[in-house]
C-alpha cells in the first residue's frame, strides 16, 4: 500500500461522514423551511462566520490564550502533585480523598466564587481551565508511578539504590508516557473549562461571543461560535496527540500500557 492510499483509507471515512452530515443538515433545513433564528443551515452558518470573522478571530484567540494558560498551570501542578502522590504513600493517603471530592464538584459552580475574587475577565477563565484539567493529569502521573514494575525496582535495589534513586531513575521516566497521554484529555477539558467560564463571567472569548449573540437572537452567529469551538477542540486534541506520539516513541512499542 502506498502512503497516499493509506492516508486515503484513514481520512476518507471521517471526511465522508462529515460531508454527508452537512449535506443532510442543509437539505433538512431547506426542506422543512426552518427559519434561521431557530436552526440556521451550514451555509447560513458559514456566512455568519465570514461576516463576523474579525470578532470570531479576536475572541477565539482570547479563548485559546486562557485555555493554554490554564492548561500549562495544570501540567506543572498536576505533574508535581502526581509525582508527590506516587512517591509518598503518606501524601497519597492525605490528599487523595480531598482530590476526589474536589474533582466531583462541577466547576461551573466555582466560577461565581472566582468572579468574586478576581472580577469578570481573563483570570476566572484561566482558573477554571486549570481546575478542570488538573485532576486527570494528577491521576495519570500517580498511576504511572504506582504501577512501577517490581522487576525494574529489583534491578536498581540490587545496586543499593535508595528510594530517591529509584524514583529518579525509573519512577519519573516511567510516569512520563502517562503524563503525555493525559495531555490530550486534559487540554480538551481545559478548553471546556475556559469556554464555560467565559459564558458565565467574561467580556471576551468565544463563550462570551456566543452568549451575547444569543442574547441578541443572532442565531447564525451562535452556531458559528459552536462550529469554531468544535474545530478548536479537535485541533487542540490532535495537536497534543501528535505531541504525545513524538514524546513517547518507546511507549508505543508495547513496553508500557497507557492509562487514559
Amino acid at each position: 500500500m502506498t502512503g497516499l492510499q493509506r492516508a486515503a483509507r484513514e481520512w476518507l471515512p471521517p471526511a465522508g461522514v462529515i460531508v454527508a452530515a452537512l449535506l443532510a443538515w442543509e437539505l433538512g433545513v431547506r426542506a422543512l423551511r426552518v427559519p434561521d433564528y431557530i436552526l440556521p443551515g451550514p451555509i447560513a452558518t458559514w456566512q455568519a462566520i465570514w461576516q463576523w470573522h474579525r470578532a470570531i478571530w479576536f475572541n477565539a484567540a482570547q479563548t485559546l490564550y486562557t485555555t493554554l494558560a490554564g492548561f500549562a498551570l495544570a501540567l506543572a501542578g498536576g505533574m508535581g502533585l502526581g509525582l508527590a502522590i506516587g512517591y509518598s504513600t503518606l501524601v497519597y493517603r492525605a490528599l487523595y480523598p480531598l482530590l476526589v471530592a474536589f474533582n466531583s464538584v462541577p466547576k461551573v459552580a466555582i466560577v461565581p466564587v472566582l468572579v468574586i475574587w478576581f472580577g469578570i475577565g481573563t483570570v476566572p477563565a484561566i482558573a477554571t481551565a486549570f481546575l478542570i484539567s488538573f485532576f486527570p493529569i494528577v491521576v495519570n502521573v500517580a498511576t504511572g508511578l504506582a504501577t512501577l514494575e517490581p522487576e525494574w525496582q529489583d534491578v536498581l535495589r540490587s545496586l543499593g539504590a535508595s528510594r530517591w534513586d529509584i524514583f529518579r531513575k525509573i519512577g519519573i521516566p516511567r510516569s512520563l508516557p502517562y503524563f503525555f497521554a493525559s495531555m490530550k484529555v486534559a487540554v480538551t477539558l481545559a478548553f471546556v473549562g475556559a469556554v464555560i467560564a467565559e459564558t458565565v463571567a467574561s467580556n471576551r472569548g468565544i463563550g462570551y461571543l456566543m452568549l451575547s449573540a444569543s442574547a441578541r437572537f443572532e442565531v447564525p452567529l451562535v452556531f458559528a461560535g459552536l462550529v469554531v469551538v468544535a474545530l478548536m477542540g479537535v485541533v487542540l486534541f490532535a495537536a497534543f496527540s501528535i505531541v504525545e506520539r513524538r514524546l513517547t516513541g518507546w511507549a508505543y512499542r508495547g513496553q508500557v500500557g497507557i492509562g487514559a
Binding site: E149, E151, W152, D154, V155, R157, S158, L159, G160, K169, I170, P173, W250, A251, R253, Q255, V256
Partner: peptide
C-alpha cells in the same frame, strides 16, 4: 544489597 555484587536477572529487564 552490596556494591561489590552484580546481578543479572532471569529476564534482561533493560529500561526501554
Amino acid at each position: 544489597p552490596l556494591k561489590i555484587v552484580g546481578m543479572a536477572f532471569q529476564n534482561p529487564i533493560l529500561l526501554p
